[in-house]
Amino acid sequence: MTGPRPRIHLARAHRVRDGAPVQGARVLVDRLWPRGIARADLAPDLWAKDAAPSNELRRWFGHDPARWAEFVRRYREELAQRPEAVEDLLALCRRGPVTLLYAARDEAHNNAVVLRDVLAGRLAEEEEKG
């Protein structure tokens, strides 16, 4: 038996610019606009800057996989301090599929992965409560 279909997808912004398909609403989840991409080429439905890691955390992490576990902890802590940003994204997810767009080259160690897991966890909790 399979669970509900995933509602939250991830896509690297540069792949979307180059024509990769996107499911549902497009949400850019980086604090900075991705380098080398025109706004018209990415065309996000929402730029969720407030849901992105702080500049300090982003600089500290530097996409170093050795810092991943601590980055996840700190970023989750930041998200807990910004409930409005998380709720805005949850509301969008409740309406249908969402693709979180990010610029990082590392597809396994980036803020969109953490944010997807936070959002999916919250949605799962809501489904359990009914």
Rank of each mutant, 00 (worst) to 15 (best):
P53I: 06
A51G: 11
R122N: 08
E107T: 15
L79Q: 07
P44Q: 07
G121S: 10
L57W: 04
R95W: 00
D117E: 15
G3C: 05
G3K: 07
A124D: 12
E78T: 12
R67V: 10
G19W: 11
A80M: 06
N110T: 03
Q23P: 02
L46V: 11
M1N: 09
T99W: 01
H109I: 09
R59V: 10
E77H: 14
G3Q: 11
R5L: 08
V72C: 10
G121E: 13
L101C: 04
A69P: 05
A38Q: 14
A80I: 07
A43G: 05
A91N: 12
L28S: 07
E107A: 15
R94Q: 10
Q81V: 02
A66W: 09
E78C: 14
A40V: 08
E87D: 11
T99F: 01
V22G: 03
P44L: 08
K129D: 13
E84A: 14
A112D: 09
V16I: 11
E127W: 08
Y75V: 03
A124P: 04
L89Q: 00
R105P: 05
A120E: 13
A51C: 11
N111Y: 01
A103V: 04
P6M: 08
L92E: 01
R59G: 05
K49A: 12
E78W: 08
T99E: 03
L100K: 00
D117P: 01
R76G: 06
V72M: 09
W68N: 08
T2H: 12
P97G: 09
R105T: 12
I8P: 00
A48P: 06
L79K: 05
P6H: 11
W47G: 02
A51Q: 06
A85H: 04
D45S: 05
M1W: 07
W68V: 10
E126N: 13
R39C: 03
R17Y: 06
R12Q: 15
R5H: 10
A108F: 12
D41H: 05
R26E: 03
R73C: 06
G62D: 10
R7V: 00
F61L: 03
M1H: 09
D106I: 08
V72T: 12
I8F: 03
R31Q: 11
P21I: 02
G24C: 01
R82G: 04
R59W: 05
E56V: 11
G121T: 06
Y75E: 02
R95L: 00
R76E: 13
E77A: 14
V22E: 01
A91T: 12
A38E: 12
L90N: 01
D50Y: 04
R116V: 04
R26S: 00
E126Q: 15
T2S: 15
R15D: 15
W60F: 11
A112T: 10
A80G: 15
L89W: 01
N111G: 08
G19T: 13
E87I: 00
R17N: 07
L123I: 04
A48T: 06
H109C: 12
P21C: 03
I37F: 07
A112M: 09
E87A: 08
